[in-house]
Design a protein around this nucleic acid. Structure first.
Length: 180
DNA sequence: TGCACGATGAAC
DNA sequence: TTCATCGTGCAC
C-alpha cells in the first residue's frame, strides 16, 4: 500500500475527487487496522461554492479546510454524526461519502456519518495528516481506473445553482453507494 | 446571550 | 415525513 502524496491532493478538487474513487482509507485505532475502499465522494470547491462550508469564510470550525492539502477536515453534523473530508487547498475539500468494507469492518459504511462511525473517526483527528499511521489514504499499484457516475451533491438544496452541479462521484454499479 | 439550522440516518 | 441531538454562525 502506497500512501498518497501531498502533491496528489494539491490539485483541482474535481480531479482529486474522481481519482480518490478506488483508493483505500486506512484507520489504525485500538490496535486494529480497518480498511475500506472509497466508492463515493463529493467535491466542495472553496469559498465561492455556496454549498461548501468554506463559503462561511475562515472560522474556528473551517480552519483545517483552509490549511494544507492532504489533511483531514472533520465536522459534526446534526449533533450526532461526524463527516470526513480530504483537504485539497484554498478552502476546497473532498467529502468521503461511502466506502466498501475491505478489512475489519463489520458495521455499515454507506454514508458519511456511518463511514466515520465504522472507522472511529471523530474530532480527535481534526486537521490530521492523511499520511499518518493512524489515518491515511493509500493505493495499490496497477489498479485500473473505475467507471465513474456523476450526480448532484446530497443535502445542499439551499445552495442555489451550486446544488445542481454534478460534483458527486461514485463507482458505477458498486453495492455500497449511499444513495443511487 | 439566545436561537435556528444543518454536506445525516433511522423509524414510521 | 418526522425525529434525535448539539456545535456553529449570526441576529439581537
Amino acid at each position: 500500500m502506497q500512501k498518497l502524496s501531498k502533491e496528489f491532493y494539491a490539485r483541482d478538487p474535481v480531479l482529486v475527487a474522481r481519482e480518490l474513487l478506488g483508493k483505500f482509507l486506512v484507520r489504525n485505532h485500538g490496535g486494529v487496522e480497518r480498511i475500506g475502499r472509497i466508492v463515493e465522494v463529493e467535491a466542495y470547491l472553496g469559498p465561492h461554492d455556496l454549498a461548501a462550508h468554506a463559503s462561511k469564510g475562515l472560522t474556528p470550525r473551517t480552519r483545517a479546510l483552509f490549511g494544507p492539502p492532504g489533511h483531514a477536515y472533520i465536522y459534526l453534523i446534526y449533533g450526532m454524526y461526524h463527516c470526513l473530508n480530504a483537504v485539497t487547498g484554498n478552502g476546497s475539500g473532498i467529502l468521503l461519502r461511502a466506502i466498501e468494507p475491505i478489512k475489519n469492518i463489520d458495521s455499515r459504511t454507506q454514508g458519511p456519518g456511518l463511514l466515520c462511525r465504522a472507522l472511529d473517526i471523530d474530532k480527535r483527528l481534526y486537521g490530521h495528516d492523511l499520511a499518518s499511521p493512524e489515518l491515511y489514504i493509500g493505493e495499490l499499484a496497477d489498479t485500473p481506473p473505475p467507471s465513474i457516475v456523476k450526480r448532484p451533491r446530497i443535502g445542499v438544496d439551499y445552495a442555489k445553482h451550486w446544488a445542481r452541479r454534478n460534483l458527486r462521484f461514485y463507482i458505477r454499479g458498486n453495492a455500497y453507494i449511499s444513495k443511487p
